[in-house]
Each structure stands twice: as C-alpha cells, then as structure tokens.
Design a binder for these strands. Structure first.
Length: 490
RNA sequence: GCAGGCGUGAUCUAGUCUGGUUAGGAUUAAGGCCUUCCAAGCCUUCUGCCCGGGUUCGAAUCCCGGCGCCUGCACCA
C-alpha cells in the first residue's frame, strides 16, 4: 500500500528508480534504475530463472533486440501492431480510424489500410465524432520503433516489441540441440520496445521495458503435464472468470473447462507471486480475458493482476497465453523452414505454445507498492532474497575498537551476500536507513562482541533482536533469508 | 494528441496573483563532538528557481516558445 508521490519520492531519494535523461528534462516512457533498483532487478531475474526453469528441459536463451522486417511481418506485428489514426482539423483530437468507421457503419474496419479507409470515409462523409469538424488524411501509426540496418539504410528492421519472437525462431535449432524432446521450455529475459502514444503511470507503461518470458513447446495430444497437474489439483486460487462477476476462490478441479497443462501453469504463476514475490492473497487475482479483449491467436488468456494503490487498482503483471500453433505456423509459412516435429507414433505435428510472460518493471514496482509501510516507522517489506542488501553491519559506537571489529565482520560477510556497512549517525538512524530500503537484517557489533564474539541480529519486520555467535552468523543469515528458518528460533 | 493543473537544493514545500534586501522552512546527506540498540542533542558544511528567448533599471515572479509531469478524454496488438 503506497501513495504514488511518496513512493516516487523514496525511489528517487534513495536510489531505486527515476525518469531517464532527467537532466535534459526527461523523455516519457523511459526510466533508469539506480544502484538499489539495479540490485532488485538482478535479484528478481535470478530468482525468476530459478523458479521457472526448475523443470526438466527448460532453458534460457538470449536473442537480439533488433529484428529484421520480415520476422515481424510474419509474426503479424507489422500489420496488427499498427493503427490508422485520423486527426480532426478543427479540434485536433486523434481517433483510431477503424473505430470511427465502425461506430458509423457497424462493420469491422480493422482490415483496411489507410488508403481504403480514406476513400471509405470520404464516401460516407464521415466527420469528427467529437466536434463534427473535418478530418485530415488518415495516417499510419505503428507501435514499433523502426531502425535502419546497415550503411545504406535499405534493410529495415524494428526494435522488438516482445522478446518471444526470438524464441520462436530458435525453436527448431534448440529442439535438435536438446535432442528432440517435448515438452521443451525456452525462456528469455530482455528488453522490448513499444512506441506508446501516451505512456503514463511511471514504470507501469514504458516505451522501453524488460520482459521475462517462458515459451513452452509441447504436444497438445500428450499427457505430459497430467502428473504435475495431479500434484496441484486441490490448490485454491482467486480467479475472475470472463463470464462471471467478482473474484471466486476456485479449486483447479472446478475449472475443468481448461486443459490440465494450462491449469498446472496457472498454479505455478500464482505460486511465484504469492510465495516468491510475497504478494498478499487479497491483492492477487487471476483474471480471464474475454475473446474480445484477448489477441486473436490466444486461445486461453489469464492475466495475473495485483491491486496496487499507487496505480489506482488492479494492474496486469503477467500473462498466461495458450497460443496454439499460431507462432510456429506463421514462421513456418513465411520462412519456408519446417517447424513440425515427429512425436510418438510417428506423427508429425507443429508443437503448441504456452507462454508465460512477465513485465519485469511492473513486477518490481509491485514489490515496492505492496511492501511500502509508513507510520511510526517507515520501512519496506521486500522479500528477503530480492532486497538490494540482505544485511547491514554497524558498530554500536565508533570507539574502543568496535568500528574496526564491525568492519572485519562486514568484510567477511560481503563475500557471501550483498552486505552494507554504515558508521554514520546514531544506531537508531542506521536502522532507519536500512528499514527504508528493505534490508532484512542488521548486525550490530557491541561491547559483548569484544568479549565473546557474539553480535545482535535484528530483523526488519519485527525489529526483534537475537544474539548470534559470529561463527554461526553466515549460516543463520542464509537460513533466515531463505525463510528456511524462522527468526528467533534456535 | 486535446483540455485543465503544475515545474523552486537530494526530497517535500513557502514565495509567483501585486516584479525589488542575502530565495525561507522542514527532512535528508557529509564531517566533527557526543553516544552501550531503534530517525536523540550540539557545531560546521554541500546542493536550488525545468530549458531558451523577450519586456524591464531589475524576473523564481510578467509575456512568448520548448520540454516534462499530474488528472480527465483518447490510446494501451
């Protein structure tokens, strides 16, 4: 729960995240990660990989940010990712051409290009829906950033609007390299680019953003995921179905209209948000998109949504998309390369794709929003492994050798984890500083340390302190950070 | 992109209407003194009027242009 202004202020002041190119006034839709934000981002990526690649035959790959024109032509982005806009000469408002036409004619106009739309509009004498003014010539607007490849600029390309295309193009090569086994998971993490007309809401809608995506290639006729499904079928998730109102707590068995492989991965995604990101259950839901809302190639589409005060409500953080064989078939047709593989029984199929897609920046913002607490103590509850630092070390006072001793403790600790050392201000001040950036554990070297080599260990959430021998410190911390061990228990 | 609001040290903000001492405060930060566990105190110190032009003896303040942010509309495969 966090007020947007307050959270943005902390983010800037302490070094998490802020508008890019700030010294020149900034540019909407671009954000920088500071030293703390960068650490969270690295941690988030590592943990995401550990969680989702924990299956046989799931792997990371990396592919370029720039894609040639023909890739995105084949994927449908060149055509589908663009809109025809018409601008009113009188009031200056812009509208989507197809929407203006559809409102008048009642027929879909999405298929038209700008010339067809122009003649159709002229024919029907269509004017501005806002003020009745004369409309200017329709113009193309494509959400993709175009780039020229090579010295002559003759080769056209785009900055990728999603990371997935690089993965689809590598399906067949990896299928061979990984010895022809399905299911096969290929994940990637990287930047994607969309030239949004009006990016708003900070890091939520960016022109350059990071995606973490896992594409699972599988045989839809197989029972590959049935066993996994069995292990989660009694899980109860907060679900908002497209045809119903309100969130319902539903078991997987109740949603028997969905295939088992899909339901299994719904649980996986939910577990990531609930258990790893530690989003409270009442702020988390799986929302099904109706056929009108979802892209035509998605057969089933649920979004994971989180209720964020700073962004005014439920916001999409990830999506689970059953894309069928659309992507591989499109690339097969356009490239002429075979994407089909033979499966048990000698049959040849084009594998189907289940896509798990995460907006990384939004995920990180959600951590901050959900975790931010104010009151008698300002602190941020970030899952311990994702926090910028796992531990901070202080001398209780700066004399009698405590300073030097604390420095030694720190030097030793930082070899094992992200640690921080601070001597400035009072001990309370130093706790407060770490509270504000979500450091879960503070270690204080005091006079007893000089006698018996024990330190106090303080946990952020409770502010409780326990005494730990230096010889056990690293091991204790590891257990607490991973939550394998409850703080304060022997 | 349209309409309205806004832009002052790192952060939050007073001052702008009605031009005029050294641009004020709070928080934060750094150094020091002090300090035996949760933003203590004292001393010292750093950083500012979004950018560009104009009016004027003089501009944070008025005018023009630009950039950005916020809210609403539109947009968000």
């Amino acid at each position: 729960m966090a007020d947007k202004d307050e959270l943005e202020s902390v983010c800037k002041r302490r070094g998490f995240v802020w508008p890019s190119s700030e010294i020149y006034g900034g540019e909407a839709g671009f954000y920088d990660y500071g030293h703390l934000g960068a650490r969270i981002r690295d941690n988030w990526e590592h943990i995401w990989k550990d969680f989702f690649l924990d299956m046989d035959n799931y792997h990371m790959i990396y592919t370029p940010n720039i894609l040639p024109y023909r890739v995105l032509k084949a994927s449908g982005h060149v055509d589908q990712f663009s809109d025809v806009l018409v601008r009113c000469k009188k009031c200056g408002n812009s509208h989507r051409g197809d929407h203006v036409l559809e409102d008048i004619t009642g027929e879909s106009a999405e298929w038209m290009d700008k010339d067809e739309m122009a003649s159709c509009m002229a024919e029907k004498g269509i004017r501005c829906p806002d003020c009745g003014g004369e409309l200017d010539q329709p113009m193309d607007f494509n959400m993709m950033f175009g780039v020229d490849i090579g010295p002559t600029g003759e080769r056209k390309g785009f900055l990728r609007p999603e990371t997935a295309q690089g993965t689809y193009m590598n399906f067949h090569r990896e299928f061979i390299a990984l010895r022809r086994k399905l299911p096969m998971g290929l994940a990637t993490i990287g930047s994607a680019f969309r030239n949004e007309i009006s990016p708003r809401q900070g890091v939520y809608r960016l022109r350059e953003f990071r995606q973490a995506e896992l594409q699972i290639f599988f045989n839809p006729q197989s029972d590959d995921f049935d066993e996994h499904y069995e292990s989660v079928k009694d899980r109860i998730l907060p679900v908002l179905r497209a045809n119903s109102e309100g969130i319902r707590e539903m078991t997987m068995e109740e949603m028997d209209d969905l295939p088992k492989f899909y339901r299994y991965h719904m649980v996986r995604m939910y577990q990531f948000f609930a258990d790893v990101m530690e989003i409270p259950r009442d702020k988390l839901r799986l929302r099904e998109l109706s056929p009108e809302e979802r892209a035509f190639y998605n057969r089933i589409h649920f979004d994971v949504e989180v209720d964020m005060e700073s962004l005014g409500g439920w916001k999409e953080l990830a999506g689970l998309h059953y894309r069928g064989d659309y992507d591989l078939t499109q690339h097969q047709k356009a490239s002429g390369q075979k994407m089909s593989v033979s499966v048990e029984g000698g049959e040849r199929i084009v594998p189907h794709v289940l896509e798990l897609s995460f907006g990384e920046d939004r995920n990180i913002w959600a951590l901050m929003d959900v975790g931010y607490r104010t009151g008698e103590r300002d602190w941020i509850s970030i899952p311990y492994p994702m926090a910028p630092y796992q531990a901070a070390v202080f001398p209780l006072v700066r004399k009698d050798g405590l300073l030097e001793k604390s420095r030694k403790v720190y030097e030793d600790l930082k070899r094992d984890m992200n640690a921080f050392w601070d001597k400035s201000g009072s001990i309370g001040k130093r706790y407060a500083r770490q509270d504000e950036i979500g450091t879960p554990f503070c270690i204080t070297v005091d006079y007893d340390t000089m006698e018996d080599d024990t330190v106090t260990l303080r946990e952020i959430s409770s502010t409780e302190q326990i005494r730990v021998p230096l010889s056990d410190l690293k091991q204790e911390l590891r257990g607490y950070v991973k939550r394998e061990k409850r703080f304060g228990t022997a």
